[in-house]
C-alpha cells in the first residue's frame, strides 16, 4: 500500500518532464528512420516482399534493442534522478513520511515503467509505420502475411529482462552523482565498451558484461547465451540494487 502511494507520487513527478518527452519522442525515432529509409531508397521495400513482417521487425528491432535502447536507458535514468536534484527536493522527500526503501524502490519501478512504455510505444509506432508502408505499396500485402507474435513477445520480454542490469547500474549512478554528466559519461563509455566486448574483445566474459547483453539479444549468433544472459541480468540487478540502496541510505540528507 505504501509502495503504491509512493509510486503514484513518483509517476506524478514525471509529468511534463524531459524524461517523459524523451520516452515518447525517443520511441518515435526508429520507426521514423525506418519509414524514411523505406520511402526514400528504391530497393528497401522490395527486399521485404519475401517475408515482410519478419524482415521488417528484424531490421528495426536490431537497431532499437541493440543501439537505441541502451542509450535511452542511460539518458532516462539520469533524467529521472535529476528531477529531485534540479528542484532541490531530496530533503522534502526524506522529511515526508516515507521510508528510504519505499522511495528507492518506487523510483526504480518508475524508471522501469518508462522503459517498458518506451518499448511498447516503439513496437506500436513500428506497426503504424508498417501499415503506412502497406498503404503506399500494396505488394507488401501485410494483412495476408504471417507475423510471428510469439517470437516478437519473447524477444521483447528477453529485452526487458536483460535491460534490468544496465538500468539498475545507471539508476544507482544517477542517484549517486548530483552532477548529471558523470552517469551519462560513464554510461556511454561502458556502452561503447559493450559493443567492442560483444564483437571483438574477450578480456571480460561478455556474459558478465551487462552493457553487451542487449547487443547479444538483438543480433544473431548469441542465441545459445540467452538463458545465461537472462539469469545474469537478474543477478546483477539484485546486486546493484542492494549496493545502490545501501549507498542511497548512507547519503540521505546530503542532497
Amino acid at each position: 500500500m505504501n509502495l503504491a502511494i509512493t509510486l503514484r507520487s513518483e509517476l506524478l513527478k514525471t509529468k511534463r518532464t524531459s524524461a517523459f518527452y524523451l520516452t515518447f519522442f525517443g520511441a518515435f525515432f526508429v520507426p521514423f528512420m525506418e519509414l524514411l529509409e523505406m520511402l526514400t531508397t528504391s530497393d528497401s521495400v522490395a527486399r521485404l516482399y519475401a517475408d515482410p513482417w519478419q524482415i521488417y521487425f528484424k531490421i528495426s528491432l536490431q537497431m532499437m534493442i541493440g543501439m537505441i535502447l541502451p542509450l535511452y536507458m542511460i539518458l532516462i535514468a539520469t533524467l529521472t534522478a535529476q528531477i529531485e536534484y534540479r528542484n532541490h527536493t531530496w530533503k522534502q522527500v526524506f522529511s515526508s513520511p516515507q521510508s528510504e526503501l519505499t522511495v528507492f524502490i518506487s523510483k526504480f519501478l518508475n524508471l522501469q515503467f518508462l522503459i517498458l512504455l518506451f518499448l511498447l510505444l516503439n513496437v506500436t509506432f513500428l506497426f503504424l509505420a508498417a501499415l503506412l508502408l502497406n498503404a503506399i505499396d500494396a505488394k507488401l500485402d501485410l494483412f495476408h502475411k504471417y507475423l510471428d507474435w510469439q517470437h516478437l513477445v519473447a524477444l521483447l520480454s528477453k529485452t526487458f529482462v536483460c535491460s534490468l542490469a544496465i538500468s539498475s547500474i545507471q539508476f544507482w549512478m544517477s542517484l549517486r552523482f548530483r552532477n548529471f554528466i558523470l552517469p551519462l559519461a560513464l554510461g556511454f563509455v561502458l556502452w561503447f565498451a559493450g559493443i567492442m566486448m560483444t564483437f571483438e574483445y574477450k578480456t571480460i566474459p561478455k556474459e558478465w558484461y551487462p552493457y553487451s547483453y542487449l547487443m547479444m539479444i538483438a543480433f544473431p549468433n548469441f542465441e545459445h547465451l540467452h538463458l545465461i544472459l537472462l539469469r545474469n541480468a537478474l543477478v546483477l540487478m539484485c546486486l546493484f540494487l542492494m549496493g545502490g540502496f545501501w549507498d542511497f541510505k548512507r547519503r540521505k540528507g546530503k542532497g
Binding site: N87, T89, S95
Partner: peptide, 13 residues
C-alpha cells in the same frame, strides 16, 4: 510540516 533551507517543489508542475 517542514520547510528546510530553500523552498523545495517541482518547478515543472
Amino acid at each position: 510540516g517542514t520547510l528546510i533551507e530553500s523552498p523545495s517543489f517541482y518547478g515543472h508542475l
